[in-house]
């Protein structure tokens, strides 16, 4: 048996617990803006998805106290934050640490490698899951850059800020992993 070497550390459980009481409503406009920003810069994403655009994708950051339901169907693609993914009505569930999901959406991590290392769990309609991954990859979606670009002239500092935030997430996750390892030793 080849032991797996996880590539992505999860956020510390303490941080996850601290985020749990926060309301989801303020997140919704930001998510809608983010989806619009990505699709405006990458209209070919929907073409690559083809018939799979009609699927419902559950995106489950396992180290956050909420998840997302993505429905990319034109002409009104939408994404919603939910406390937990519904048991019924989803075609695909993609689950993993938030850093893994963002890494796939900004091209910095390879989806197959995340699957091999078991950082990522994919269940349901695999053709739709593969199409979504390839659609994001194919047009060079970079979530951070695309979000920053929506702010026009403020894009460069916004991108630095967002990447800084991502770096902070990573440091938090790594420190959490270290604490967990120490706790077991």
């Amino acid at each position: 048996m080849v032991p797996n070497h996880r590539r992505v550390a999860a956020l510390p459980p303490l941080l996850t617990a601290a985020l749990r009481p926060l309301p989801l409503a303020p997140l919704q406009p930001a998510l809608a803006l983010a989806l619009r920003a990505v699709l405006r810069r990458h209209p070919r994403v929907l073409a690559r998805l083809g018939g799979h655009a009609g699927r419902r994708f559950g995106l489950d950051p396992t180290d956050l106290p909420f998840a997302f339901v993505l429905e990319p169907r034109p002409p009104a693609p939408r994404i919603a934050a939910v406390r937990r993914l519904p048991r019924r009505g989803l075609d695909v569930r993609i689950a993993g640490p938030i850093r893994a999901l963002i890494g796939m959406a900004d091209g910095s991590l390879d989806g197959d490698a995340l699957f091999f290392s078991r950082d990522l769990v994919v269940e349901g309609d695999m053709a739709a899951a593969v199409a979504l991954r390839n659609a994001i990859e194919g047009d060079g979606v970079d979530l951070i850059r695309d979000l920053a670009a929506a702010l026009g002239p403020l894009a460069p500092p916004a991108e630095r800020l967002l990447r800084g935030g991502l770096g902070l997430l990573e440091r938090l996750a790594r420190s959490g992993a270290g604490e967990e390892a120490r706790a077991w030793s």
Binding site: G103, M104, G107, S108, L109, D110, G111, D112, A113, R133, N134, E137, G140
Partner: peptide
């Protein structure tokens, strides 16, 4: 060819 940009670049 089925892999992502991170694989190709690396």
């Amino acid at each position: 060819r089925q892999r992502g940009r991170a694989y190709v670049e690396g």
